[in-house]
C-alpha cells in the first residue's frame, strides 16, 4: 500500500482499491460488533444505526460492553467519547484539504477513521481528499455491512479472537506505520508516540494514551 502517492491525478477509486483488504478485515469486526450488540440487548436496527452514525469500532465495542456489564449510560458515553478524542486533532489535520461547501465537508469528515486517514495522509503531513473519501467509503461499507450481517446472523458466526483477528489490527497499524519511519524525524515521532502510550496505559482510561501521543506529536512539532 503506497502512502506517499503523488498529489495530482488521484482518484476516489484509488483510495477504495487501496482499502479493500482493510475493509474486509473491518467487515469481520463489524460482524462481531453486531453479535455483541444483539447479545447486549440492542435491537438489530439499533446496532446498525450505531455503526452507521458513530463509525468508530473501538468506541462502539467499549460503549456496548460497558452497558452489557451494567456500567450505566454515562460511563458508556464517556468511554466512547474518550476513545474517539483522537479524531479531534486528526480532523484538524484533514480539514484544510476537504473541498466544497460546508455540508459536503462535514460529510467527508465523518469518513475519517484511523485506516482511511492513514491511507490518505502523505508523509509530509498533507492529506489526499480523494483517497480519504474512497478509502473511507470502502471501510464504511465494510463496517456497516458487517454489523448488519452479524446482528442478523447472531452467534452462528465464528469468534474473531479464536481466529486471531484481534491481533490483525495492531499488525495493520504497524504496516501502515512502516513506510513512514524510514525518515529519522518520523521515526523519533513514532518512538515518542509509542512510549507515551506505553507509560500512560496503566494510569489512564482507554483512549487517553493515544490522544496524549497525538498532542505530543503536534506540540513537539512547534518547537
Amino acid at each position: 500500500m503506497d502512502v506517499a502517492a503523488p498529489a495530482s491525478g488521484e482518484r476516489v477509486l484509488d483510495g477504495s482499491v487501496a482499502a479493500i483488504p482493510v475493509a474486509a478485515l473491518v467487515a469481520v469486526f463489524g460482524a462481531s460488533f453486531g453479535v455483541l450488540a444483539r447479545t447486549s440487548g440492542f435491537p438489530l436496527l439499533g446496532a446498525v444505526a450505531m455503526s452507521a452514525t458513530t463509525f468508530a469500532g473501538s468506541a462502539q465495542f467499549a460503549a456496548v460492553s460497558i452497558l452489557a456489564e451494567g456500567g450505566g449510560l454515562a460511563a458508556a458515553v464517556v468511554a466512547a467519547v474518550l476513545l474517539n478524542a483522537r479524531y479531534g486533532p486528526i480532523g484538524l489535520s484533514v480539514a484544510p484539504y476537504l473541498p466544497g461547501a460546508w455540508l459536503r465537508r462535514v460529510l467527508a469528515s465523518q469518513l475519517v477513521v484511523d485506516e482511511s486517514w492513514a491511507i490518505a495522509s502523505r508523509t509530509d503531513g498533507s492529506v489526499s481528499p480523494q483517497r480519504l473519501i474512497g478509502a473511507g467509503l470502502a471501510v464504511y461499507l465494510g463496517w456497516v455491512g458487517g454489523t448488519a450481517l452479524g446482528a442478523a446472523a447472531g452467534n452462528a458466526l465464528a469468534d474473531p479472537a479464536a481466529l486471531g483477528l484481534d491481533a490483525a489490527f495492531p499488525a495493520l497499524f504497524l504496516g501502515l506505520l512502516a513506510p513512514r519511519v524510514r525518515e529519522p524525524r518520523a521515526r523519533r515521532a513514532a518512538a515518542a508516540g509509542a512510549l507515551i502510550a506505553l507509560v500512560l496505559v496503566p494510569f489512564t482510561p482507554p483512549g487517553v494514551p493515544v490522544i496524549a501521543a497525538a498532542a505530543g506529536a503536534v506540540l513537539g512539532q512547534r518547537r
Partner: peptide
C-alpha cells in the same frame, strides 16, 4: 497545517499499535 501535523500519523499509529497489542 501540513507542517504542524507532519508527525501526527507516525505518533498516532505507533500509539495505536501499543494500545491494540500490549494493553
Amino acid at each position: 497545517s501540513a507542517a504542524r501535523f507532519e508527525h501526527l500519523a507516525p505518533a498516532v499509529l505507533a500509539a495505536l499499535v501499543v494500545t491494540a497489542s500490549l494493553s
